[in-house]
Amino acid sequence: MEHESSFLVVVGVDGSPESVTALRWAVDEARVRHGRVRLITSWSYPPRTIDIDGGFIDDRSERGAERMQASALAAVPSEGVDVTGHVVQGPPASVLLDAAAPADLLIVGSRGLGGFSGLLLGSVSSQLVHHASCPVLVIRS
Rank of each mutant, 00 (worst) to 15 (best):
Ser6Ile: 01
Ser6Val: 06
Phe7Asp: 00
Phe7Asn: 02
Val9Asn: 01
Val13Ser: 07
Gly15Phe: 00
Gly15Leu: 02
Ser19Met: 07
Val20Lys: 09
Ala22Gly: 04
Ala26Phe: 07
Val32Leu: 14
Arg36His: 10
Arg36Glu: 00
Ile40Phe: 03
Ser42Leu: 10
Ser42Lys: 08
Trp43Phe: 15
Trp43Gln: 08
Tyr45Phe: 13
Pro46Glu: 07
Pro46Ser: 11
Pro47Asn: 01
Ile52Met: 09
Asp53His: 12
Gly54Glu: 06
Gly55Lys: 10
Arg63Asp: 14
Glu66Tyr: 00
Arg67Met: 13
Arg67Val: 15
Gln69Asp: 00
Ser71His: 10
Leu73Arg: 13
Ala74Gly: 09
Pro77Glu: 06
Gly80His: 05
Val81Asp: 05
Gly85Tyr: 02
Gln89Met: 14
Gln89His: 13
Pro92Ser: 05
Pro92Asn: 01
Leu96Val: 12
Ala99Pro: 07
Ala101Phe: 13
Ala103Thr: 07
Leu106Glu: 03
Ile107Val: 15
Ile107Asn: 04
Gly112Tyr: 11
Gly115Arg: 15
Phe116Asp: 13
Phe116Ile: 14
Phe116Trp: 05
Gly118Glu: 12
Leu119Ser: 12
Leu119Ile: 05
Leu120Trp: 07
Leu120Ser: 12
Leu121Cys: 10
Val124Tyr: 01
Leu128Ser: 04
His131Gly: 06
Ser133Leu: 13
Cys134Tyr: 08
Pro135Gly: 09
Pro135Asn: 04
Val136Leu: 12
Leu137Ala: 14
Leu137His: 07
Val138Ile: 02
Ile139Gly: 01
Ser141Cys: 03
Ser141His: 14
Ser141Asp: 09
Ser141Val: 04
